[in-house]
Design a protein around this nucleic acid. Structure first.
Lengths: 246, 246
DNA sequence: CGGGCTCTTGACTCAGCTCAAGATTTGTGG
DNA sequence: CCACAAATCTTGAGCTGAGTCAAGAGCCCG
């Protein structure tokens, strides 16, 4: 979180300028914006604005009317759904470069909340959808991302409905590792930005079960816990087998 | 299933003709094709062809390269994912009017299998994606359907991760009822096209638990089981409360 | 009308939950 | 930099909802 660009600098770099903020954005190459070239990106810059949230702050309310989309620049975000009595299911975690929102939809369908201090780049719904009309390849890119979200959701349904607690923890660690590697981070020393409660709500478990399973993997030397919520994956092979019930 | 149009008639009505098959298609108004007017639909007709599958037949293999998309005309279809040891999770059921396939994706991500005798209308990937370039409103429609799938997946993650067996069965019956009503069928007398095993694999339960919970609802007079796998919803209110844990 | 399904029901087991302490980490003010 | 309160995490003991195993009841369909 120490690398979050202070808001002041962001504000002075507000988009719309020829020399757009986007061109020096640290997630430019990884996010949906990479579908636009250096000239086209100016149009996106022109309709974007940045915002920072503290850990725990709500970014979008569940069922709220969609008015803006967002791109995560820095931080970790969770998407969740609630039952009337307070039971929670986290449907996904988002990381830098990830897109938030459903194109051509009326309403949000999940809570969107900052897990850590988070910096996002937002676009008004109309402006972005208007931009899509003129750039079919951008539409295709966002359609692709939407499909990717669906694939991840399907994979998670398999986990929630059919995997054991041990398999769930294994799968979770591998997912974080894979996503870290996509971002260019070290896949063997992963940072757990979220607490046990969020992990439990993501895996359909209780915090006690999460804690016990992690302790067990530690005892078995499959993982090692370091300072600053770092998990070292000692034995990726073992983790992979365990995640699918071998 | 008695209303399935015999293949012979279908073949003679093959699309491409001015007076397209689509214009007399029984799911025309409900499926993605409704985004096209009576002239435009001719283009879709020209690239479509029909096919029938028997119960249990595979329509698309998991992880297979996408070469065709499909629209369900008649029957019930299941989407599922498997673990190496055979555990199965059904990620969704599809009904007449539903679209199958991920636009702008490389591969399928689930098995697609006929639950009952099923009739589909298929389109070659390239042809349909080509059509999308010329009809942005069709793209928007399919994007909307993709979002709807994602919303349903999120809802199901909440069910799989956080609901009790009783709540799961209640939610399942209400889902079938809602989908039946969208199709213009009676929402209070729903047809269970799938067996207990498929219900169990959809809800993350065992067949015994599914059977016990259904029996319990029957004893409590919330539902009544009729001939031909019909479930009568006697008390929709009770079902609704029970589905969310009231 | 009989063989092979699927579905139901019962008895028992167990993975993961609940409840309850402690231990560790984090944040805060002096 | 330390003390100490609050929050989070770990661990233990016992419980329970759903799973497993097993037997019997319906119900197609030839």
């Amino acid at each position: 979180m120490s690398e979050v660009i202070p808001l002041k600098i962001l504000d002075s770099a507000r988009c719309g300028a020829k020399d757009s903020f986007c061109n020096q954005c640290k997630v430019r190459k990884r996010s949906f914006c990479s579908a636009l070239d250096d000239v086209e990106i100016g149009e996106l810059s022109a309709i974007s604005s940045q915002k920072t949230y503290h850990a725990g702050e709500t970014i979008f309310e569940e069922a709220a009317k969609i008015s803006r989309f967002a791109n995560i620049i820095e931080g970790t975000v969770k998407l969740s759904k609630l039952l009337p009595d307070g039971r929670q299911q986290i449907t996904g975690f988002l990381f830098p470069g990830d897109f938030v929102g459903k194109i051509y939809s009326e309403n949000h369908t999940t809570f969107v909340e900052a897990v850590t201090k988070t910096q996002i780049c937002t676009f008004a719904q109309g402006s972005l959808e208007n931009l899509l009309e003129r750039h079919p390849h951008l539409t295709r890119r966002l359609f692709g991302l939407s499909n990717q979200s669906l694939e991840r959701a399907e994979e998670w349904m398999l986990l929630l409905g059919r995997k054991t607690a041990r398999e769930k923890i294994g799968s979770f660690l591998l997912l974080l590792s894979q996503r870290a590697s996509e971002r260019g981070d070290d896949p063997d020393n992963i940072h757990l930005a979220m607490g046990r409660a969020d992990i439990a709500d993501y895996l359909g478990l209780t915090i006690e079960t999460v804690s016990r399973q992690i302790s067990k993997l530690k005892t078995e030397q499959v993982i090692r816990l370091g300072a600053g919520n770092i998990v070292h994956l000692n034995d990726r092979e073992a983790l992979q087998e365990l995640a699918e019930g071998a």
